[in-house]
């Protein structure tokens, strides 16, 4: 793939109003030399296949699994709030922030993952809406046998979760929701570090913040109940025998995450976790 063959204008041609067209992806490939091969046509075919219905379903599933991995680790880290001493979670937070290169690689990776997940679902959902312009006058019973409330609300739960994530980042990472966070510091083992424990307890002492977090985690439950089961189907690993275990597994995963995350605001409101 050479610059002449690609054409300079390709870098700027986002044809047909799509967010990620073949041309746009080619430009990205052009910028990543390790992904280039000599066979231009072959690459183009791969790009078309990745952007097909199934290709985008794979993208949504792979990025979904990566984000599930993240929330599991995130919840495990959060549960250190219950360690009995604030030093535990403060030391953990300090550890994470002491390698800026690793930290920022993770953050940018997660951002890219979330962006791909959102791009995939929006483009798929838009096509789905166009594909069914007229419904039936009477709602069928049989065709809804395996349809669940969590599966029909994936887009809504996803959008609200996105809003929640932005709020969450503004709250604890950017610290603009409560500006006093920036001055909360503690000393552990002679090292001065941000007092994450105090930030969490202070934040969740406000009932509306706690309520918002618990509602958001209920939506995470809903999103993963369907999402975590669906990835097996997209990866081609679901069959008649494994289906019941996959459905059960998604229930367990979603429930554990809901309880694990929600336990912290609830514990603060109940006075179990206090300053």
């Amino acid at each position: 793939m050479t610059l002449e063959r690609l054409g300079f204008e390709t870098l700027f041609s986002y044809r047909s109003g799509g967010i990620l067209t073949v041309e746009a992806l080619e430009s990205i490939l052009f910028l990543a030399p390790s992904l280039q091969t000599d066979d231009f046509l072959m690459n183009k075919e791969i790009l078309r296949m990745i952007q097909s219905s199934i290709g985008r379903k794979w993208i949504v599933a792979v990025t979904g699994v990566l984000m599930i991995g993240f929330v599991v680790v995130h919840m495990t880290g959060n549960l250190q709030m219950f360690a009995g001493t604030p030093d535990k979670i403060n030391g953990y937070a300090h550890l994470l922030k002491s390698y800026p290169l690793v930290l920022w690689s993770f953050r940018l990776g997660l951002l890219a993952t979330a962006a791909l997940h959102i791009w995939g679902t929006i483009s798929l959902a838009r096509e789905n809406r166009i594909a069914k312009p007229v419904g039936y006058a009477v709602a069928g019973r049989k065709s809804r046998l395996q349809v669940t409330l969590t599966s029909v609300t994936m887009v809504i739960s996803g959008i609200i979760l996105l809003g929640f994530i932005i709020f969450h980042l503004l709250h604890f990472t950017a610290q603009v929701v409560d500006r006093s966070y920036a001055s909360m510091e503690t000393v552990v083992g002679g090292v001065t570090m941000p007092d994450v424990y105090r930030m969490v307890v202070t934040g969740f002492s406000k009932p509306w913040i706690s309520l918002f977090y618990v509602v958001a985690m209920a939506l995470l439950f809903s999103h993963l109940r369907h999402g975590a089961a669906s990835v097996w189907q997209t990866f081609g690993l679901r069959d008649r025998n494994s289906a019941q275990f996959i459905e059960m597994g998604s229930w367990i995963l979603a429930t554990v995450l809901f309880l694990g995350f929600s336990s912290i605001p609830v514990a603060v409101l109940l006075g179990v976790l206090k300053l």
Partner: peptide, 19 residues
């Protein structure tokens, strides 16, 4: 060919299997 015909995408709700 399926994509070109304007069919939608599977969202794993399995109504197809039921009917």
């Amino acid at each position: 060919a399926m994509d070109a015909e304007g069919f939608g995408n599977c969202s794993n709700q399995y109504a197809c299997e039921a009917v």
